[in-house]
Design a protein around this nucleic acid. Structure first.
Lengths: 527, 527
DNA sequence: AGCATAAATAATAA
DNA sequence: TTATTATTTATGCT
């Protein structure tokens, strides 16, 4: 998670060449060095000061940012699209498969898509609209899928290069009328969102969507995927429209995205929008479709894989088909696992448990009624989507009030039941309560997200921290003595200096790296 | 599979040594401490080197620095004790426990921390022995202890004026036998290092030298700390800190920016562009405005400019209050700016431009087709990645042939379109040409980067893999469902995605870690 | 325009 | 799994 965002994309690989890297680094280093001398770094105090204002923000590369964050309030956010657009969109392919083609293709060679180096994918975002394509990728996380309608997908980079999207339910976001604007950086980071309207957007774009295949495609087998999808499948697309939401989830949240194109939806204006959402999905599917076709193999697989669970059982084979719970949710595939030790159930994720155990008994483990939990999980997702909330939003809201055990990931896992029965049993009541409250607020027209969420969702890259000269002094002094502070020391430093502990940790990492580079260069120089 | 390890080696550390971290070494060191000096050995003779060197300059703020030096030979490290003292040392605790206090405490006092600059510490170094005291402090941690012996302390300035020392674990530095010499500037920056040995060093030559107070001096005794601190103490510093920075960072440097307002949206008329961009700008502007107002500070401005757009929304008021850095951040005031001159587009980064102008026209500024550039930028990135090249590599290759305007930063900004249209227009053809040539070479099998870049092949650490967006999508989807894929699943994924199985395994390890960290943070945040 | 470095993330070591 | 390192990307600042 982290998300980083950055682009990530780097890739390098390809070539394989070996090369470069080191050398390069070295070079770079060198360069820097010199610099070093001269400069000093840090800034002076004054400087700092001034800066302050500056905005912080802004500069975004792509975009700027401003913080956004907060979102809050009202307006709150803006988006930057940095990418222009459309162009990107074009990808037709979805990632999945073919990735290839689409965007990528262009890019890279065919083969690659998957292959390594690649590149690719277009990242772009658009505000509302286009987004999708990217989105798909985002999926990584659960949320994504949100796609469904109402939501806006905001591309976020994963760091890997992959982007993720953050979806914001339009409805919420907009809160009714309001509109949302998102500014994203090129990386897909969101800078800000705003609610203003965006007029026109309405269009739906695409839709095709459907395909649903979305994801995965399938083949896989068997699997869940199918389940989902299809299940959903159903007609999906069409349905989509209708349901948008579901789909989204379809897979569960996952998104698929990808596709080439995009669309956009933005429209937030309307709360409605739904359509847009749909689109997104659609595309995705398509993509998949292709993928499937072409490569089929490949793509599919993963799907399959996904499902699989850990077990390693080789065997497996599963075919699971299982659609156990599916319809809605998806997933949950089933894998077969094979044999697991009996008790395993206690440790296995619920979704797997079915499979595992005997069917019959499977419903209860340690006194916990798995079926009940499964049903709740399914309904929870539906209710969440109905409110136009993403897992991320729910996770943020809950983690704020209930503690860290309720992150987006937790929500995702819960919905997928990729958690142990015991854990699910513990979490369930909390989710139940929260959902009731959320629904209440929603009814009361409090649609504003703010209530639900606290703040920002963003996943974008953390703003670059500017250390004050004073803080740097302290840090440097400490570093002189100890390049590897203990956790307690870092905590202490963070408290004293009033910086995030993580920031302090990273500072030391980077400092050590800088020192190493310096030394390295020196050596080179002194043959 | 897996096996890869090989490369593994990574670590190399400087010296190549395998070694572990410095820290560890350090600890060890401690024990040994005194001994070290003498001992060791490894190294050799060769060494020669002279030593140290002088440092460039140094100007240190407070002190000057000189560095001292060299130390050598055998011994591994040098120390600069800047701290003197014993006082510090006292740590009684071993690292283990006490740590906390240890180091840190000593350093600063609360107040101090912030305080400025201090100076002082003497910098000198000694090798092993003396050091200890300091070390002690360090000890808290493992590393620290380093102080102990093995490390060299190199004074470095922070830029702020304060000096700091860098300790270099000898081991690292020396990499085994080699010796290292470091040249630091007054700022503390390291200028050069040398490996030679320093013969005789054994003795410490200098050491005393050091003390000498050379520089600084100080009181050393008392410790450096004091020095530092006190200094810091000063009022100023503190104060300084307060202000300005605050804002900026807010708490952590972050800024917030932004204000409330919003803006408008541009019309998105076109789907294409994203409107979003606009918003961003808007805010920014505002920001500036305020800033201006308030602080005035200068710096900001430029930034503003970049982003700024026109919008005008008035209002905002900013209030910033800034407490210094509060943890939270905050701030962000908003300013309103106002209107920007129409031409702004010429100055704004492309990515933002969309927004700004009319939508319609926005695509061209000064006769420059922004859409075209955007597309090119996108494709450029894709092509770059397809060749497996990093921004750094491209930057190095281009800066060599085309001049300094093509650094890694420049490439980064171009790809993100965080540059003005004019600038982009100028750079584009160069990139275009270079890319074509690079692709040509690639096709011809010249994959070696060397061609692209200069360097070396080296064997060491495996090249960092860049996952394609498509692959990431697949991986993320899988991860959503199952964070712990079985071996068979990983194998399947690796085959499908065409990545090494080990790479896939590592991806999951890192992904789990990232998730964990994310959750951790969320928890913290929500207290 | 760059430079220094914070942040993100792949790779490793423990 | 946890902790670090090695590499890259992104960005604040001048």
């Amino acid at each position: 998670m982290d998300g980083d965002s950055n682009d990530g994309t780097t890739t390098e690989s390809l070539n394989g060449e070996p090369k470069p890297d080191a050398a390069k680094l070295a070079q770079t280093a060198i360069i820097k060095q010199d610099v070093m001398l001269s400069a000093t770094s840090t800034q002076s105090p004054l400087a700092t000061a001034s800066s302050v204002f500056t905005m912080p923000t802004i500069s975004m590369p792509t975009v700027s940012m401003a913080n956004s964050t907060g979102l809050g309030g009202l307006a709150d956010h803006l988006f930057l699209p940095h990418i222009p657009s459309v162009t990107d969109t074009p990808n037709s392919n979805s990632h999945a498969d073919g990735k290839a083609d689409g965007g990528i293709t262009s890019l890279s060679s065919p083969t690659q898509l998957f292959g390594q180096p690649q590149v690719a994918a277009p990242q772009f975002f658009l505000t509302g609209q286009s987004v999708q394509a990217a989105a798909a990728s985002a999926a990584g996380q659960c949320h994504s899928p949100a796609s469904s309608i109402q939501q806006l997908l905001i591309p976020v980079s994963t760091g890997n290069g992959a982007q993720q999207f953050i979806s914001i339910p339009v409805s919420l976001a907009a809160g009714g009328n309001q509109q949302i604007q998102l500014l994203t950086t090129s990386n897909g980071q969101i800078i800000a969102t705003n609610l203003a309207n965006i007029p026109g957007l309405t269009q739906p774009l695409n839709l095709n969507i459907n395909n649903t295949g979305a994801h995965q495609t399938q083949n896989s087998t068997t699997n869940s995927s199918q389940s989902h999808q299809q299940a959903s499948g159903l007609g999906l697309a069409n349905q989509l429209g209708s349901l948008p939401q579901l789909l989204t989830t379809g897979a569960q949240g996952q998104i698929l995205a990808v596709g080439p194109q995009v669309i956009n939806p933005l429209s937030l204006t309307q709360p409605t929008l739904a359509s847009s959402a749909n689109n997104a999905l659609t595309q995705i599917s398509q993509t998949n479709g292709q993928l499937t076709t072409n490569h089929s193999s490949a793509s599919t697989h993963h799907t399959a894989i996904r499902h699989a669970h850990t077990n390693s059982q080789p065997s497996v084979a599963p075919v699971v088909s299982s659609p156990p719970r599916l319809p809605t949710q998806v997933l949950t595939p089933t894998v077969t696992s094979d044999v697991l030790p009996p008790n395993v159930s206690q440790l296995l994720p619920i979704n797997l448990s079915d499979t595992v155990g005997n069917s019959t008994e499977s419903t209860t483990v340690d006194g916990i009624n798995l079926d009940e939990i499964k049903e709740f999980a399914k309904q929870f997702k539906i209710r969440r989507l109905s409110l136009g909330l993403t897992q991320t939003q729910v996770g943020q809201a809950l983690s704020a009030t209930e503690g860290p055990a309720y992150s987006q990931s937790a929500i995702c896992r819960f919905e997928k039941l990729d958690i142990t029965p015991k854990s699910a049993q513990k979490i369930k009541p909390v989710l139940e309560r929260w959902m009731l409250e959320a629904e209440e607020r929603y009814k009361n027209g409090v649609s504003n997200l703010t209530d639900f969420i606290g703040s920002e969702p963003s996943k974008k890259r953390k703003r670059r921290t500017s250390f004050t000269p004073q803080a740097l002094e302290v840090l440097n002094q400490f570093f002189e003595r100890n390049t590897h502070p203990s956790g307690a020391e870092m905590t202490e430093l963070s408290e004293k200096l009033n910086y995030d502990r993580e920031v302090i940790r990273v500072w030391f990492c980077n400092k050590r790296q800088a020192l190493k580079n310096t030394i390295k260069k020196l050596k080179q120089e002194t043959p």
